[in-house]
């Protein structure tokens, strides 16, 4: 059975690129556009992997990771960030890792790097 992956990203272009690549690879992908929507989907379904942007309006990626870990879930999480004026990528990705993300991707990244990170996360 194909692994089920939840993608949470408020950038429509980035969301499309990531989604297309993972669907091409045969994964069962659910896509959401912000942290609140993402957590709702997460609670309603069973996922093998969560890929979340860090900087998003509403509930951001750090809150998503925190909510998942506070629920006691061990599902692997990949955090993505390009950073911003309010929160540099260096800090947002370190915070993601500290909160329990198993892989971090610094935007922009190559699709090959995403694929490698997904494979590593799924075999943990």
């Amino acid at each position: 059975m194909n692994a089920k992956i939840l993608i949470i990203d408020d950038s429509s272009e980035h969301r499309r690129l990531v989604t297309e690549a993972l669907i091409d690879d045969g994964y069962d992908v659910t896509v959401t556009a912000d942290g609140v929507e993402g957590l709702t989907a997460y609670r309603a379904h069973q996922f093998d992997l969560v890929i979340t942007d860090v900087l998003m309006p509403g509930a951001d990626g750090l809150e998503v990771i925190r909510a998942i870990r506070e629920a006691g879930a061990t599902v692997p999480v990949i955090a993505m960030s390009g950073g911003g004026a309010s929160f540099p990528a260096a800090i947002s990705l370190s915070a993601s890792r500290a909160l329990g993300a198993v892989e971090v991707l610094h935007k922009p990244f190559r699709i090959a790097e995403l694929r490698d990170a997904v494979q590593r996360a799924l075999v943990r």
Partner: peptide, 17 residues
């Protein structure tokens, strides 16, 4: 609060997504 922080990021014109 955390919720307010996220709301402020939304209004930050330099906030990159």
């Amino acid at each position: 609060s955390n919720a307010d922080c996220a709301a402020d990021e939304r209004e930050d014109p330099h906030h990159r997504r």
